[in-house]
Design a protein around this nucleic acid. Structure first.
Lengths: 153, 153
DNA sequence: AGTTGATCGTCAGCACTGCTGACTATCAGT
DNA sequence: ACTGATAGTCAGCAGTGCTGACGATCAACT
């Protein structure tokens, strides 16, 4: 082959410092890893995140849940649709403000959430394992900081 | 407001350990930051990555370029279309293997690539600044390792 | 009461990305 | 010449994320 040895190394050097590339492919790898872990529960990561937000405190309206997840309110419609059709959550008209749909987990939803969360955590730990505990923690901290830091244009 | 103080803190604790959430939102923040930096060149990050791969070594076929970037070959068609229409790259039928389109940068392409790369690097440095040099380097190393590590299912 | 402006949920529709499948042209081996 | 594989192209589909519109509802003001 004319394909010499530069393939791996060159790509490494070219793209290995591109933050966008690194983030994107890390995400892809994580999805490959975590997807199968959640499949048995009939959930994907986004749906599980919604369950987690709903299970956290007092019942939330769709918009509140959307804001906490950083998704659009129109996206949340489909998300809640999915959870409702799976019997994991229920919409209920708010009595105080009848514009709002209060979304609450069903008993099954609570159960599935707990089990799926455990599976997700295990999958993430496994995914991060090659870094070692200290570096894994540093990675999480770093990402959190980058997200929180306001954009100074 | 009934919205108490739990908002920020609760989300932090709930989602701040979700690797998928962190990666996704870090990417969003980066895009917000780097997008404007590349806009003056009429490029987005993906197109610039293609330019970088093409400028790296000997001329590549579309498929080779696609493989190095980790994109689909059908996606590369549109990517090269865009670069060609901007006068930054040119397709040329390979003489050795007439199935292949060798893609080469134009002089303008080389120029734009160099300038845009500098802008991208500056934007990324700025984006990573809150971490400090050491932690920024650690982040890059960690992501690289996660990508390279084979998925052990 | 009536009016106005905002908010929440919903839907239709658009854009972008990433894929599959089919097709043509070409190559390599038989 | 025949076969199987490969490169590029295109049409089409699915997922995601948005905008714009709409009806219902609320809050404030007249």
């Amino acid at each position: 082959m004319a394909e010499n040895d530069d393939d791996g190394a060159a790509v490494e050097e070219l793209l290995g410092t591109r933050l966008g590339y690194l983030l994107k492919h890390t995400q892809l790898r994580l999805a490959e890893h975590a997807g199968p872990a959640l499949a048995p529960f009939g959930l994907d990561a986004r749906e599980l995140a919604v369950l987690a937000v709903l299970a956290a405190g007092r019942p939330l309206s769709q918009l509140e849940a959307a804001r906490r997840l950083g998704v659009d309110r129109t996206t949340m419609v489909a998300l809640v649709d999915a959870l409702e059709s799976k019997g994991l959550a229920e919409r209920r008209r708010s009595e105080e403000d009848r514009r709002r749909n209060v979304v609450e987990l069903t008993e099954q939803g609570r159960q599935v959430r707990a089990d799926a969360e455990a599976a997700r955590e295990a999958a993430e730990r496994e995914f991060l394992a090659p870094l070692g505990e200290k570096d894994a923690a540093r990675l999480v901290t770093a990402l959190r900081m980058l997200i929180r830091t306001p954009n100074r244009h």
